Simulated assay, not measured.
Amino acid sequence: MTYKIRTLEEQLASVQDAIEKIESGAQEYQIGGRKLTRADLATLYAREAALRSAIAAQNGQNVSYARMDMT
């Protein structure tokens, strides 16, 4: 089995897609007889911040990102 190495930008897009789906009400869903649950938002927000920082560092920027949940 081979694994595709995804860029930081691709990983960030995946994390942001998961965040968007959860925020729009798709935290948990069922397909056929299988029930699927996405990661919790706190974990995804932390991963998003880490990826943004890594991308900034990769691009020679010294930027920190924070995301606040106002709910």
Rank of each mutant, 00 (worst) to 15 (best):
L41Y: 00
D17W: 12
L41T: 06
M70D: 13
D17N: 14
T37I: 03
Y65M: 03
E28M: 13
I31H: 04
Q58A: 09
R67N: 06
D69V: 12
T43N: 08
I19L: 08
A54S: 06
A50E: 10
G60S: 05
M68S: 07
N62H: 13
V15C: 14
E9V: 15
S14N: 14
S24Y: 06
A46R: 10
A57N: 03
A57L: 07
R34G: 00
Y29M: 03
S14L: 14
E23A: 08
M68G: 03
R6W: 15
S53F: 07
G32H: 09
A49R: 09
T7F: 11
I19K: 01
T71H: 07
Y3D: 09
I19W: 01
E10G: 12
V15E: 01
L8K: 12
A13N: 15
S24N: 06
A46D: 13
Q27L: 14
A46K: 14
T2V: 14
Q27G: 10
S53C: 06
A49N: 10
R38V: 00
Q30R: 12
R38D: 01
A26D: 02
N59L: 11
Q30F: 02
T71L: 02
L41C: 03
T2R: 13
I5C: 10
D40P: 09
A54N: 04
E48Q: 15
A39E: 08
L12T: 13
A13V: 15
Q16H: 15
S64P: 04
T2I: 14
L51P: 00
G33C: 00
Q16G: 11
A26F: 03
T37N: 00
Q58D: 05
R34W: 01
I31Y: 06
Q27I: 07
Y29P: 02
Q61L: 14
G33Q: 01
Q61M: 12
R52L: 11
G60T: 03
E23H: 03
A13T: 15
